[in-house]
Every structure is written in structure tokens, then in C-alpha cells.
Design a protein around this nucleic acid. Structure first.
Length: 412
DNA sequence: GATGAGCGT
């Protein structure tokens, strides 16, 4: 059992679970009597659920949810009580009870997924001792308010991964828990407690981090360090300004300006990015570290490569079984009667010998498909041509893999 | 070091 030794002052109690879950007007009376039971072992049955939950109150109905066709358990179910008091008591007493050796999680049933998805009032905890389980986590955080859901991340064997999540029913409780528990010791480990952020949100939060160094490009060749200092100095004190130059001292038309204060750097970017300087539109932004810049270049390169392939989709023909005497020009000649040829290439090995295949791209997909229809199987010099729409590399690899697997299955 | 998945008759 985990030993919690958190010392936080000012015990904060949230609204009672029942009242909070019921909502003010009790518009949905079932909210308070219907429980969701998750993390069920797949062998758990309706009657097991009934037996367990009927111990603590009068159960009206239970159900383990199952896949319609396979009848396999989906690992969650519902328990409905006749009154809210019993439901609340069941939550209190049965949450994190083991059933078939697996700890169940009990929550009020929220059929509307919007709260779950919103991620509001949701906090993330890391550097947790591996001995801390769902229940210990719940006990630690329940003093800050009403918990909707609470879970330690585990590996497939059930071992804690040392981090977890607690979602409260209101932001104030979540903020309070963060304020009081972040950096505290639990089982002698200093935990981090913060707002839960999705990966995307985390990345953009990271990108917003402050910076002092500003990158500027699209300078005119005559722009000097002094000019930069004058232009950027409007926004605050500058510690350095540099125009990058080649070996002959000729400007590479980009440079860096370092500000004393990050706020000034941000203001300069805001004000100067896109502004005209000597008839050229400046790009002004946060200066990236080398690794960051390489990452960005790489992803941009991959993006344009993909776009280039997409652009040819339906326009590019793959041709094989070409006679060795066919070169780029002859290939173009063969296909030119069907339309405008944008590009045309016979593939060759490093020594220049034709591989007997090539690509012909047309300006419209109509031209390409007509050429395909007319030229596929046509005798050229000594052999019948094979013509098909060119496939993307990954696409072709995937298909080859499939046919290889089918072939393998046939052999077995 | 780490930032989720789950809601029926």
C-alpha cells in the first residue's frame, strides 16, 4: 500500500459528489443513479457485477457491454441503482475494488463525451512512485474536489508507468490541486503536478517560449549591421546585430539581432515581420537553434516531395518492357500523339544501360488515361509495351508486401 | 522520462 506523506495546508473540500453530479435542477435524474464501471477484466459477467454492487445498495440493473457480433466483453459496464444515495455509496466503497484480480474504476455515467473530450479541469501527475495505484492517487487528490476520473498509466502487465491523470468536475479544484501539490513529496519522490495538455497543445506551448535572438531574412544586399541596429533598436536595447556574409564579404541577405529583453524581441517580430525594407518584404521571426532548423527543413522537404508526387497523381505513366533502343526522345515521340508531355524518362542503371522501364507524364489525366488505353500491349520495336499508372513508392511497396504474403499463404 | 480512454439499453 502506498504511503502518502503529502503535507499540504488548507484542506480544500469540493462539493459533495452527488450534488455536483446531479446538477442544479436534476434535469437528468439518471445521472445520479447510473454508474459506469470501467477497467473490467474481460471475463467479468453480469451476475458478478450484480453480486458485487448489490452488496452495498439496491441494484436495479447491471450490464457488461459486449461486442454485438462476437459477444466479447468491451471491458466496461453499467450499474443502475434505485436511489442516488446507494449509487454514491457504491462509488465510495467499490471504486478500485479488484474483480477477477483487476481493479475496477467506478464513475458516474456521462453518456455525453464532451466533458471527457474537453480535457478541462484535467491534471497530469508525473514522477510518481510505482507503488502508488489508482486508489492512492484518488485518495491524495480527492481533498481538492470532486473527481470525475482518476487513473495511473500502466504497462500491459499492470505495472505503473509513474504518471497519471486526475480529472475534476471544475477548474478551481484542479488549479488548487496543482498549486498545493506540485513539487510536493509523495513516498519520498517529488511529484510534478500540472494541467493536462494534449501533445499538440504542449508543442505549441513550447513554441511560444520566450526568445531573445531574432532571425531576419530577405535583406537587401546593401543592408548593414548599423541598419539592423537602427531598425530593430526601435523596439528595445540590442546586444548584437549581425549580417551573414560569404568569403568575399558579400551579404547573404540574412542576419540575427539579439535583444536584451525577450518582450522586446517578441515586439520586434510582431512589428517587423512582413514589413517592406528597400522594396523587399522582410521575414522576421524567432531565431531557431540548429537542431530546430534542421527539423523544420526536413519536414518541409518531405512535404514538398509529397506534393510533387501528388501533383503527378493520375498524370504519370509507368512504362516497362521497353526495347533497349528506346531513349528519352524516342519515348516522348511514341507518346506525344496523346497530348502534352510534361516529363519523360527512361530509367538506366549506373553504367547507362536501359532498365527497360520509364515514366511519361502528361499535362492532364484524360491524356494520360487515353495513352494508357492505346499504348498498353502495343508492339514497339520487338516487344509489347506494358503501360500502367505510376504508383507512389510506398504504395507499391505495400502492394508488393500484400502479394508476397498471399503467395506465402498459398505455399503453406 | 512520461500528457488517457472510457459511456448502453
Amino acid at each position: 500500500m502506498a504511503q502518502i506523506q503529502v503535507q499540504h495546508q488548507g484542506h480544500v473540500s469540493g462539493p459533495s459528489g452527488v450534488a455536483a453530479a446531479a446538477g442544479a435542477g436534476g434535469a437528468n435524474q439518471f445521472v445520479t443513479t447510473s454508474l459506469y464501471v470501467g477497467d473490467l477484466d474481460f471475463e467479468v459477467t453480469d451476475s458478478q457485477l450484480y453480486d458485487l454492487f448489490n452488496n452495498v445498495g439496491q441494484v436495479v440493473s447491471v450490464r457488461v457491454c459486449r461486442d454485438l457480433s462476437t459477444r466479447r466483453s468491451l471491458g466496461y459496464g453499467y450499474v443502475n441503482y434505485s436511489n442516488p444515495q446507494d449509487a454514491a455509496r457504491a462509488m465510495e466503497l467499490l471504486n478500485f475494488t479488484p474483480l477477477n484480480g483487476k481493479t475496477i474504476r467506478v464513475m458516474y455515467s456521462h453518456r455525453d463525451p464532451s466533458i471527457r473530450r474537453s480535457g478541462s479541469a484535467n491534471i497530469f501527475i508525473k514522477n510518481l512512485d510505482k507503488a502508488i495505484d489508482n486508489k492512492a492517487l484518488h485518495d491524495t487528490f480527492s481533498s481538492f474536489g470532486n473527481i470525475l476520473s482518476c487513473k495511473i498509466a500502466t504497462d500491459p502487465s499492470g505495472q505503473s508507468k509513474g504518471y497519471g491523470f486526475v480529472q475534476f468536475d471544475n477548474e478551481e479544484s484542479a488549479q488548487n490541486a496543482i498549486d498545493k501539490l506540485n513539487g510536493m513529496l509523495i513516498n519520498d519522490k517529488q511529484v510534478y503536478v500540472g494541467q493536462f495538455l494534449r501533445k499538440q497543445e504542449r508543442d505549441s506551448a513550447l513554441n511560444k517560449t520566450t526568445f531573445n535572438n531574432v532571425y531576419v531574412k530577405n535583406l537587401s544586399e546593401s543592408t548593414t549591421e548599423e541598419d539592423l541596429t537602427k531598425i530593430f533598436g526601435e523596439y528595445g536595447p540590442i546586444t548584437s546585430a549581425a549580417v551573414m556574409r560569404d568569403g568575399d564579404g558579400k551579404s547573404k541577405c540574412f542576419g540575427f539581432v539579439n535583444f536584451e529583453n525577450a518582450d522586446d524581441a517578441a515586439n520586434a517580430v510582431e512589428a517587423l515581420n512582413g514589413k517592406k525594407n528597400d522594396d523587399k518584404e522582410l521575414y522576421v521571426g524567432k531565431a531557431l537553434k540548429k537542431s530546430e532548423r534542421e527539423l523544420e527543413l526536413k519536414s518541409r522537404f518531405e512535404q514538398t516531395a509529397k506534393e510533387a508526387v501528388d501533383k503527378f497523381q493520375g498524370l504519370n505513366l509507368y512504362v516497362k518492357n521497353l526495347d533497349d533502343s528506346i531513349d528519352d526522345d524516342k519515348l516522348k515521340e511514341l507518346f506525344s500523339e496523346f497530348g502534352t508531355i510534361v516529363s519523360c524518362k527512361v530509367m538506366r542503371d549506373p553504367s547507362g544501360i536501359s532498365r527497360g522501364s520509364g515514366f511519361v507524364a502528361f499535362s492532364t489525366s484524360e491524356e494520360a488515361s487515353r495513352a494508357l488505353g492505346e499504348m498498353n500491349g502495343k508492339m514497339v520495336v520487338s516487344k509489347p509495351l506494358y503501360v500502367a499508372l505510376a504508383q507512389r513508392k510506398e504504395e507499391r511497396r505495400a502492394k508488393l508486401q500484400v502479394s508476397y504474403n498471399i503467395g506465402k499463404n498459398l505455399l503453406v
